[in-house]
Nucleic acid binder design. Sequence first.
DNA 1: CATGAATGAGAATTCATTCAT
DNA 2: GATGAATGAATTCTCATTCAT
Lengths: 188, 188, 188, 188
Amino acid sequence: MINATIRLVREVGYAQTTTRAIAQAAGVAEGTLYRHYPDKAGLFVAAITRQSAPITVWARELPARAGSATVADNLIDCLTRLADLRADIVPFELAMLTDPELARPAATARTSEPGPPEFLAQYLHAEQRIGRIRADVDPVKTAVVLLAVLFGLAVPPRRTTEALGGSWPDIADAVHLILDGVGVPVGD
Amino acid sequence: MINATIRLVREVGYAQTTTRAIAQAAGVAEGTLYRHYPDKAGLFVAAITRQSAPITVWARELPARAGSATVADNLIDCLTRLADLRADIVPFELAMLTDPELARPAATARTSEPGPPEFLAQYLHAEQRIGRIRADVDPVKTAVVLLAVLFGLAVPPRRTTEALGGSWPDIADAVHLILDGVGVPVGD
Amino acid sequence: MINATIRLVREVGYAQTTTRAIAQAAGVAEGTLYRHYPDKAGLFVAAITRQSAPITVWARELPARAGSATVADNLIDCLTRLADLRADIVPFELAMLTDPELARPAATARTSEPGPPEFLAQYLHAEQRIGRIRADVDPVKTAVVLLAVLFGLAVPPRRTTEALGGSWPDIADAVHLILDGVGVPVGD
Amino acid sequence: MINATIRLVREVGYAQTTTRAIAQAAGVAEGTLYRHYPDKAGLFVAAITRQSAPITVWARELPARAGSATVADNLIDCLTRLADLRADIVPFELAMLTDPELARPAATARTSEPGPPEFLAQYLHAEQRIGRIRADVDPVKTAVVLLAVLFGLAVPPRRTTEALGGSWPDIADAVHLILDGVGVPVGD
DNA sequence: CATGAATGAGAATTCATTCAT
DNA sequence: GATGAATGAATTCTCATTCAT
């Protein structure tokens, strides 16, 4: 049922993902949904929660990689994985932003536990200590900006890519931009 | 009616913005909506279109500013204005991503005309020619990444800011990060 | 729609009186019900309220009849009318006792205004003052007992009347019993 | 299971007494209900039947009490016990009046066997023969009126008692009213 | 026999859309 | 052109009943 929900949200959008459609896609009766989840929102929250788990699990390992390989490779690897894992979640995140009904309950409540932003910030901070990240940048803000790019790029563009010359940046592009900067260094 | 629509989407969310609510907020009868717009989606598209116009108008002036002031100031100025103008549009953009019903019609049709991404890319390209932007970066990709950050930061975070140390980056932070880079320059 | 509701409750019972049945009986669409009443309970309360009005109006005249005709005639007349008027209300009263959902709202809230019990008690009290009712009875309790009989007799008996010898008492019977008493007066 | 049914009907009302609630209250699985009773209505009828039994048993002794003690004491005693025993049944009786689904099956079938009305009528008739009840009253009608009062007083009043001066009659009040009458005897 | 997950018909309610005035 | 009552399909959710284990 969760799989059916995720598939439907991805394929037809949150607005079209009715309980009837979910039940049909899951091959169960509509009433069966309510034996497993208290209501429709509960089902969606369960879907988000289940999809979110591996992301956090994976992000937890990130700080330990400070110092290994290169910063660019670590970030590209990290963000690429996050992007893959989040691909199915973005429609839900959009739905939660669109429909305040979904944003109420428990799932997001665990504000206490750290998530990808915190782990990414920890990683950047660790790299900073060993001199691979500039000392004067704020690791938390940098982490948030990186994740903002991730989210911004994950959202399907309304304008076709062709209009932009066909060069839609990928995560590696974004990471290199932010690592190297686009401005000419002062003093050159 | 468009104003009422925009206000309602901002205040109560897209999901709660019913035709009845729009009519009431606009001080007209429900049926009157259909004298001016073919259907609800048409009204929303009209609202997006009207709100988008000043953004494009403003972005058009951007390339001409190449060389003046500093790159950082120009970008911060540009992106801050874009952010202000888009504040009312983001809920609609989210709604269009959530409800494919909205994404169908005319609004996206005008792919031919250039929009903010193109103008921002043109600006970056112009700065590149006069040596204020590194020569080896792709102006289009950079423009897209900047706008992705803009969108990513505009979306209200689900995790409270406090959990992140209270330092949610603003546009100036993001511009400086991307201009200067966070990595230690090779050769330092 | 109120008429349809009253008719359906009388004919098929409260439990079977669904919004669909009401709409169909009223010859309107189901959604139309909600243009006139906030919800199903509101419709029922409106039906009860409308049917109750003439009863109270009529009972109001009762105290003024003290002294005229005979006590028995006045009571029989009064209670018979009340019974007629309440015939359509009894199923609703039963429904309100069965389904606590109905008992919540405003309709019954006007506890301040006097109803049939008060007027009946006033009448009995007036008759008491002119010596046509025994001085040692409590007019209020007597009024309540009379109305309790009325309600008890209005409820359709589960046992068929035949089993009881075919003599189901009518209101006149009950009034005479209560006026004259069934016991042999002490001292006779 | 019957006990659970009775308790639930008393506590939460007939409308809220679902099969799931009954099963949970009885500590059995929902499907188990259907091993013992053909359907939900069958379970309710069984509950009514079982609760009704002691009432009839007790009422059977009533006629034999004619001549003993006083009529008032006998009636008050009888009706008080009936009221106690019926307290748990009244909600069911109301439910059966509200939901014709319940009124169909076996329970009403045993019209042949005498019940409280018959025994009460027999008692009154016996008292009549020994001159403690007026000779000109119909014992059956009187029994029905007494039971109607019983039922009418058992139904919780919708108007608060305070509005009526706080004097809600009890069974003794009602018995005395009906025995002695409220009218001034002709010839006084 | 008991279980309890699954069922699916049906309930109340919402809301975009229509159309007679 | 504006109105707003009426519409009815669609939605979420409930619950008595069944049946494989």
